[in-house]
Amino acid sequence: MANAEVFQVRTVEAPQLPAPVSTSGVIGWMRLNLFSSIGNTILTVVGILIAYSLLAPLIQFALIDAVWVGEDRTACLAQDGGHIGACWAYVGDYLPQFIYGRYPTEEIWRVNVVYALFALLLVPMMIPAVPFKGTNALLLLVVFPIVAYFLLTGLVIGDEEILPIVETAQWGGLLVTLVIAVTGITASLPLGVAFALGRRSKMPIIKFVSVVFIEFWRGVPLITVLFMSSVMLPLFLPEGVTFDKLLRVLVGVTLFSAAYMAEVVRGGLQAIPKGQYEGAMALGLRFWPMMYLIILPQALKLVIPGIVNTFIGLFKDTTLVLIVGMFDLLGQIQSSFSDPTWSTPVQGHTGYLFAALVFWVFCFSMSRYSIFIENKLHTGHKR
């Protein structure tokens, strides 16, 4: 009798087994990205050693050996020759000045209201799914600047002082940094778009003016622009005519940033295929509807990294206003070094570390948000 062959047919799908540990999870990611070859392994080990050599002393100084509470400099002085870390007690004592500068203490609530309004309007604007974007943009870009101006500077109606006048010379700290950065960012983008379109215009006069503007401001250092706008500009004005120093700085920073923004936007315009222009014209669209509806949305989407990079550079460049006598966050920190109450060998290190941390938080937040928007808007351009 022949041997009968027995076949078994599975009628139920076999259970899925988990991927091997070596190819999934943290271990799989490390094997793929950090230890995929001998060269990558060597580079990973060297990178870890370098990072440890840099971060270990920083963590030791900023956290482990730090002094968190104290009344004066004696709390941050080394005892018996021992090591001492960051004097965060000094930062805590000076924190109001770092945030508000010399703004009158009894009027600080006005600054806090401006901060709160800005956050309440900005956060919904940054969330894509929130409704009423148009109304929110109108409030943020039109209504808020007017309200913030009167809240910060004061309001006088007739002979009655509704809000006491606070001169901009009394502003300082993070307040000045944010005013300059937000104003420069908000105003430089539309100006940059306008000059980018002007540089690509077929009208000789408009193109010439745009090219001269862009090349002039890009060829002059920002520190020179600030010095000229603050010190030299009043010499060319008629007698009795003057501008507030903060206003002169805002104008200089905005024009300087707009020139760089124009070149970033022009790069996006040149990256748009010619077929997009031809298709828009075939639909009968004139120049401005074509730019507003078809060309600019695509161009600005392509250059989001460059736009945010310009914004980050502008935010960091606000520290240069110290050259014209305005005390931003960094300037306010430097001015505190003259106070003998907190004069210690680590005062300067702590102050600059605090400034670096604040600037890093703002710049890193802008960078991560730009990556989020770029990933959300990419449609076939990402590689």
Rank of each mutant, 00 (worst) to 15 (best):
E5Y: 01
V6N: 01
V6I: 14
Q8I: 14
Q8R: 13
V9D: 03
R10F: 04
P20E: 12
P20G: 15
S22I: 09
T23N: 10
S24M: 00
S24G: 01
W29Y: 11
W29V: 13
L32D: 11
F35Q: 08
S36Y: 09
S36T: 09
S36C: 11
G39Y: 13
I48C: 12
Y52Q: 06
Y52K: 06
S53E: 06
L54R: 06
P57M: 12
L58A: 15
A62F: 14
D65V: 08
G70A: 07
E71T: 10
A75R: 00
Q79I: 08
G82C: 00
A86R: 05
W88Q: 02
W88N: 04
Y94M: 01
L95H: 04
G101A: 00
G101C: 01
R102L: 11
Y115Q: 11
A119P: 02
M125S: 12
M126S: 03
P128I: 07
P131C: 01
P131N: 00
L139G: 12
L139M: 13
F144A: 04
I146N: 04
T153L: 08
V156R: 00
V156T: 03
I157V: 13
E160D: 09
E160T: 13
P164Y: 03
E167F: 11
E167K: 12
T168W: 05
W171G: 09
G173P: 01
V176A: 00
V176C: 00
G184S: 13
I185F: 08
S188R: 10
L189S: 09
L189T: 13
L191M: 15
A194K: 09
R200K: 13
K207S: 15
V212T: 12
V212E: 02
E215T: 08
L222C: 07
I223Q: 04
V225L: 02
F227W: 12
F227H: 07
S229R: 02
V231I: 14
L235V: 15
L235N: 15
P238Q: 10
V241L: 05
D244R: 01
D244N: 08
L250F: 06
G252M: 10
M261P: 03
E263S: 10
V264R: 07
R266E: 10
Q270M: 05
P273G: 08
P273N: 09
K274Y: 07
Q276A: 12
Y277I: 03
E278G: 05
E278R: 07
A280I: 00
A282P: 01
L293S: 13
L293K: 15
I294S: 13
L296D: 14
Q298T: 06
A299W: 02
V303W: 08
I304W: 04
P305A: 06
P305G: 05
I312W: 14
G313M: 11
D317E: 11
L322I: 08
G325N: 10
L329P: 03
L330H: 05
L330T: 11
L330D: 07
I333T: 03
I333Y: 02
I333N: 00
V346N: 05
Q347L: 10
H349Q: 04
L353Q: 05
L353H: 04
F359R: 00
S365N: 12
S367M: 07
Y369C: 03
I371P: 01
L377Y: 08
H378D: 13
H381L: 06
K382T: 10
R383D: 14
